[in-house]
Design a protein around this nucleic acid. Structure first.
Length: 731
DNA sequence: GCGATCAGCT
DNA sequence: CACAGCTGATCGC
C-alpha cells in the first residue's frame, strides 16, 4: 500500500448502463503500468438506474461459491478413485526437474478453428487504434447476421405457389400419402398403392427411388463429370410430390413432422421456398427441428436452386475454400458409424469424387494412413472453417493429421471414431482434442499420459480397462510399433508422441505444445530422425511473437503489486479446466499468498501431479485469499466482471482480472507483455500467456527436428495456407 | 431421466 | 475471429 486513497465505498458507484456490455467507453485504453498507477477510480461516470439485464451467469449463491467460479465442471475428483496403475505422482507440469519429465501434451487440431489473420482486422484493439484513444467501441457481441433475411416477396411467392397447388389438386388426382380423398399413386411409378399400409407405401417409393438412383448413377458417376457439386442421380421430383418431401424429412431424421407437411400439402417445389417463419407457422414449434430443417433446406438450395431439386439427405463435405461438395443420399437404413461396413447409401461424399484425397473409390487407406503427403493440403479441410457443413453427418473423414502414417494409430481423433482402428491416442485433456469421446467408447484402447488418464476416467467416466497409460521418456512397443511420449509443455498431462514404425519412417505428433529447452534437449528427439512431423501450428504466423511465459508471469506479479495499494482489491486469474496453472502457482509462490480455487478445481489440481509444497499455495476457502482463479470465460467480458463485482460489493471495491491468452498478441499490437483495460472499478489485463509455441519457437523447433515432411495440425485458412505455413517454417 | 448432440455465444 | 470452452434445447434411448 504505497499510497492511501480517500475513496469511501459510497464513492464507488458502479457504472451502470442500460446496455452496458455492447457499447461503452473505455476510460483507459492503453495505459501502461506506470501511467495508470495513479488511480483506477478517476473515471467514474454518474450511475444510472441499476437495471440489470439478465445475464448468463448462474449458480452463484449456493453454498457461498463466488460468482465466477460456477464450475470448472469437475466433480468427485479425488485421488482415491485412481487405481494403482495411475501414477499421480508424476512430475507436475509446472516443475522441471533434472530430467525431461513433466506432464504431457497433445494436440487436437481439428476442433479448433483458429483463424489468425482475421483476428486483428476485427479486433477491438484494432478499432481502437483506428479510432483513437476515445474511441467508442463495439464489443464483439454483434447481432446475428441477417442470414437470408426474409423477403416478403418470397412469402408471396410461397403463398401463390400454395394457391396454385390447391387449384392443381382440385383438377387432378395428386398422389397423397394420407390416402384421404381417393386412390393413392406412387409419385414415381404411378402405381396405385392405395391398399398399402403407410409403411409399405414408403417401402415401395423407396424402391422406386433406388431404381432410379441406380440407373442415374450408372450414367452420372463413372465419368465423374460433375461440377463438383454432386452427381445428379435422380430425376427431379415432380411438383406436387408430397411423398418426396416425406422421404426427405425422414432422411434428416424428422419423420415425426411428416404429418404436418402432408397436412399442409408441402410438395417438393414448395419446400424449396419455405423459410423458418413458415415452418413455425405450420406448427413446427420446436426450435431444434426447425433449425435442422432450415439448415437442410439451405443445403438443398446450395446445390440445386429452388427448382432444381433432389430429394434426399444432403450430406455436405467441407471443401477447400469453404465451398462444399454435396451429394444427396437417401438413408433407408441406419447410418453406421463404423466405416468398415458402410452401406452403399452411406458412402462418403468424397467417394463420389475420384482424386479427392483420402477417399476415392479405389483409393486405399481412406483415412490416409499410408499416405505421406507432401500435399497434405489436398486433404486439409481440417481445422479450416467448414462451418456447419457437417452437422448432419455421422461419418466424417479422418483428417490427415489424426492418422499416423505407417501405423494403425489415430491421435486425438475421437470425433472420427470408427471400427477400422483400435488404438486411439489422446494427447491432452482439452475438449477440442477429446471431443467425441464418451463413456460408451468401445473402439479399443485409449493411450495417454497418467494425468490425462485420470481426467478421462473422472470426467468422462471411462473405465481404466479401456485406458493404457503411457510413461514419459520411455520407449514402449504397441502393436509392434515403438512409441515414446515426451512432455509437451502445454497443459498438465499433455504429451508429444514419437512413433517409430517398422518402415523406419518416424512420425512425431506434437499435439498442442510449447517449445522449451527441455524439449530441445530431449535425447529421443535428438537421436531420432523424423520423417513426418505433425505440428501444432496454432500460432504459425510471424505476427505471433509473444514473450516467454516467465516474462508474462513476472508482468502479472508486477501488475498485482502495482494494483494492490487498495486492500479491497480482488484479483482474478483466468484458467481453463486444465491449463495456465503455472501462472497462478508462480504468482502465489512469489507473492507468498495463497490463491483461492473452488473445491472442485482443488480436487482437480490434486490429480495433476503437483508436489505438496506447491499444493500448499492453493486454498478452497475464499476468505483466505484475494487472488482467485476463475474460468477464462468469466473474465472475457466486462459484463461478467461487473456482475462479479456486484456480488462482492461489501468485500471488494476493485476487481483486477487477468486473461492469459496468446491471442491478445498479434499484428499491430505492441510487443508489450500485457494490456490494461478499465471500466469503472473493473480492470482487465490481457496478457500473452501462451501454452502454444510462438512463431519463432515453431521455426526453431522445425529446424531442430528437420523432418522430411510436415503436416500442420491447425490449418487456419485452408490448404493454400497450409503450404504457405510450411514454406514459412522452412524459410 | 439421462447421455449425446447441436446451435449459439463468448 | 476464438486459446477452449459454456449453456440451453432437443432428441433418442
Amino acid at each position: 500500500m504505497s499510497r492511501s486513497h480517500c475513496h469511501t465505498e459510497a464513492q464507488f458507484s458502479f457504472p451502470e448502463h442500460d446496455d452496458y456490455d455492447d457499447d461503452f467507453h473505455l476510460p483507459l485504453t492503453q495505459t501502461t503500468l506506470s501511467q495508470h498507477s495513479l488511480s483506477p477510480f478517476n473515471h467514474h461516470r454518474p450511475s444510472k438506474k441499476p437495471k440489470h439485464k439478465p445475464t448468463t451467469i448462474h449458480h452463484f449463491g449456493k453454498e457461498n461459491v463466488p460468482p465466477y467460479d460456477n464450475d470448472f465442471h469437475i466433480e468427485n475428483c479425488s485421488l482415491d478413485c485412481i487405481p494403482s496403475t495411475i501414477d499421480c505422482s508424476a512430475v507436475p507440469h509446472s516443475q522441471h526437474q533434472n530430467d525431461v519429465v513433466s506432464s504431457s501434451f497433445a494436440d487436437s487440431p481439428d476442433l479448433k478453428k483458429k483463424t489468425k489473420g482475421a483476428y486483428f482486422r476485427n479486433s477491438i484493439e484494432s478499432k481502437l487504434v483506428a479510432l483513437g484513444p476515445h474511441a467508442r467501441i463495439s464489443h464483439g457481441s454483434g447481432k446475428p447476421l441477417d442470414d437470408d433475411d426474409g423477403d416478403d416477396s418470397e412469402i408471396d411467392l410461397l403463398l401463390s405457389l400454395c394457391n396454385e397447388l390447391d387449384e392443381a389438386e382440385s383438377s387432378r388426382m395428386m398422389p397423397r400419402v394420407d390416402g384421404v380423398g381417393g386412390s393413392v399413386l406412387c409419385p414415381l411409378c404411378g402405381v396405385d398403392i392405395s391398399s398399402f399400409s403407410e409403411e409399405q407405401r414408403h417401402l415401395h417409393t423407396n424402391d422406386c427411388l433406388d431404381r432410379v438412383e441406380d440407373q442415374a448413377q450408372d450414367v452420372a458417376v463413372p465419368g465423374g463429370e460433375t461440377d463438383g457439386v454432386g452427381a445428379r442421380l435422380e430425376p427431379k421430383p415432380k411438383a406436387g410430390n408430397v411423398s418426396a418431401v416425406v422421404d426427405w424429412l425422414r432422411s434428416i431424421g424428422l419423420a415425426k413432422y411428416e404429418d404436418i407437411f402432408v397436412r399442409e400439402e408441402v410438395d417438393w417445389d414448395t419446400l424449396q421456398w419455405l423459410k423458418e417463419e413458415d415452418l413455425l407457422s405450420i406448427g413446427i414449434t420446436a426450435l431444434g427441428p426447425r433449425k435442422k430443417i432450415v439448415h437442410a433446406l439451405n443445403e438443398l438450395r446450395k446445390v440445386t436452386g429452388p427448382s432444381d431439386e433432389k430429394h434426399e439427405d444432403a450430406i455436405a463435405e467441407p471443401r477447400r475454400n469453404g465451398k462444399q461438395k454435396i451429394k444427396f443420399q437417401r438413408e433407408k437404413s441406419e447410418k453406421k458409424v463404423d466405416g468398415t461396413n458402410k452401406p452403399v447409401a452411406n458412402k462418403l461424399i468424397t467417394e463420389y469424387f475420384p482424386g479427392f484425397a483420402g477417399n476415392g473409390k479405389k483409393a486405399p487407406a481412406a483415412s490416409g494412413e499410408q499416405q505421406e503427403t507432401k500435399n497434405s493440403s489436398l486433404d486439409s479441410g481440417h481445422k479450416t472453417k467448414a462451418k456447419n457443413t457437417s452437422t448432419t453427418r455421422k461419418l466424417r473423414d479422418v483428417p490427415i493429421w489424426c492418422s499416423i502414417p505407417g501405423t494403425p494409430f489415430r491421435v486425438d481423433a475421437f470425433k472420427y471414431l470408427r471400427g477400422d482402428c483400435s488404438h486411439w491416442f489422446l494427447t491432452h485433456f482439452h475438449l477440442d482434442h477429446y471431443q467425441g469421446l464418451t463413456k460408451s467408447f468401445s473402439h479399443g484402447k485409449i493411450y495417454c499420459s497418467s494425468i490425462t488418464a485420470s481426467l478421462v476416467n473422472m470426467n468422462i467416466g471411462i473405465a481404466y480397462d479401456k485406458i493404457h497409460v503411457l510413461p514419459l521418456n520411455e520407449k514402449v512397443s504397441i502393436d509392434g510399433i515403438d512409441v515414446t511420449c515426451l512432455d509437451a509443455n502445454h497443459c498438465p498431462g499433455s504429451i508429444i508422441i514419437l512413433f517409430q514404425p517398422p518402415n523406419g519412417k518416424a512420425v512425431l505428433h506434437t499435439g498442442d505444445f510449447r517449445y522449451s529447452e527441455v524439449i530441445a534437449n530431449n535425447p529421443f528427439l535428438r537421436m531420432s530422425p523424423i520423417h513426418t512431423l505433425i505440428l501444432d501450428t496454432t500460432y504459425c504466423n510471424p505476427q505471433y511473437d509473444f514473450p516467454k511465459q516467465e516474462a508474462v508471469i513476472q508482468f502479472v506479479i508486477d501488475a498485482i503489486q502495482a494494483e494492490a495499494f487498495n486492500p479491497q482489491t480482488l484479483f482474478l486469474i483466468g484458467s481453463y479446466t486444465i491449463g495456465k496453472e503455472r501462472l497462478f502457482l508462480e504468482v502465489a509462490r512469489t507473492l507468498h499468498k495463497k490463491v483461492y480455487v473452488t473445491a472442485a478445481k482443488l480436487r482437480l489440481l490434486k490429480c495433476l501431479g503437483f508436489k505438496e509444497e506447491d499444493m500448499q499455495w492453493f486454498t478452497s476457502n475464499q476468505h483466505e485469499s484475494n487472488i482467485h482463479v476463475s474460468p477464462m470465460w468469466t473474465l472475457a467480458s466486462f459484463k461478467r466482471l461487473k456482475h462479479i463485482s456486484s456480488q462482492y460489493a461489501g468485500r471488494f471495491s476493485l476487481i483486477v482480472a487477468f486473461s492469459p491468452t496468446g491471442w491478445t498478441f498479434g499484428k499491430g499490437k505492441k510487443k508489450s507483455p500485457g494490456r490494461r483495460w478499465q471500466q469503472g472499478t473493473v480492470i482487465r489485463y490481457e496478457v500473452p500467456y501462451s501454452e502454444h509455441c510462438s512463431y519463432a519457437e515453431l521455426k526453431e523447433f522445425v529446424k531442430l527436428i528437420s523432418p522430411d515432411n510436415i503436416i500442420p495440425s491447425v490449418n487456419n485458412d485452408g490448404p493454400e495456407s497450409a503450404d504457405a505455413m510450411i514454406s514459412l517454417l522452412l524459410s
